[in-house]
Design a protein around this nucleic acid. Sequence first.
DNA 1: CGCAGGTATTTGGTGTTGCTAAGTACCGGT
DNA 2: ACCGGTACTTAGCAACACCAAATACCTGCG
Lengths: 109, 109
Amino acid sequence: MGKQATEMLKGTLEGIVLAILSTRAAYGYEITAWLREQGFSDIAEGTIYALLVRIEQRGLVDVAKVPSEKGPPRKVYSLNAQGREYLDEFWRTWAFLAERLEQLREGSN
Amino acid sequence: MGKQATEMLKGTLEGIVLAILSTRAAYGYEITAWLREQGFSDIAEGTIYALLVRIEQRGLVDVAKVPSEKGPPRKVYSLNAQGREYLDEFWRTWAFLAERLEQLREGSN
DNA sequence: CGCAGGTATTTGGTGTTGCTAAGTACCGGT
DNA sequence: ACCGGTACTTAGCAACACCAAATACCTGCG
């Protein structure tokens, strides 16, 4: 993917991660791997970790330290009530944006 | 709209403006007004102008100075070949992102 | 035993972007 | 002469994704 993706991810990546966490608890390494599988081939390792720290500081997720058999302890994140609320708002904003863009795309063809 | 929109607009706003310019030439003030009508209520005046300068410097648009009856001369922008190419790539990136998000939204409900 | 390699997180610095706020410039009507 | 609408510019700021390097833990191989 090109550089356009980098800028477009700003703001949406956060929603993506929250959406993932809304279905199941997960830790950084796992999320990064999953995103890569989904085609976000060039999402930087560090990006996800920084994002997770951010949403933790905002109180959108709860964290549990879980020992791993293969490395240092994992920080497992799970969405809390506040995070769920925030995610709802994310979806509303996304829906609005997607609608406008869909209209524009149709109009320009 | 909330702060989420601000971050989500990064990258997409550029595509939006390019899409507008792909249907017709336009100038900054006009574009801002149109966006506000479309519900982008809080897009800052200066944001659009800065964006236009950027895409001009990247060679995505051509510019013509046209005198106005009601104020200082307008800078009318129109999409050129390179801009059209860039817009195509924008749509591809957007489509990819929208698809992933749609999947996520379905999955979490 | 040492050391490479996969797992897992942290940290510091960079570039791009949209926002804020203030300013400049041109014009018509009161 | 001045206010308000039109139209563009500029400087500084905050947030976010990226990059690079470092740290920590464990297994397996020579």
